[in-house]
């Protein structure tokens, strides 16, 4: 909810519990999330952060 307030789509974040012995499930979860994010597309954050940092002369 906080992320949405800041403009980050819900789809970009997921919370899953996967045990170390659930290798197949881990692969499924990661593949699925990767596909979802590809659908949502690149966020503006990298460019926005770079621009803000450059403007500030920040470290």
């Amino acid at each position: 909810m906080k992320l949405e307030q800041l403009g980050i789509e819900r789809d970009r974040v997921r919370l899953e519990w996967v045990s170390a012995s659930e290798g197949t499930r881990f692969a499924e979860v990661v593949t699925d999330l990767t596909q979802t994010i590809k659908k949502v597309g690149p966020g503006p954050f990298n460019k926005q952060q770079q621009k803000l940092t450059k403007e500030s002369g920040d470290d």
Binding site: Q5, L6, P44, L52
Partner: peptide
């Protein structure tokens, strides 16, 4: 870390 809400 994010500093601000996403700008279009």
């Amino acid at each position: 870390l994010l500093r601000r809400k996403r700008m279009e």
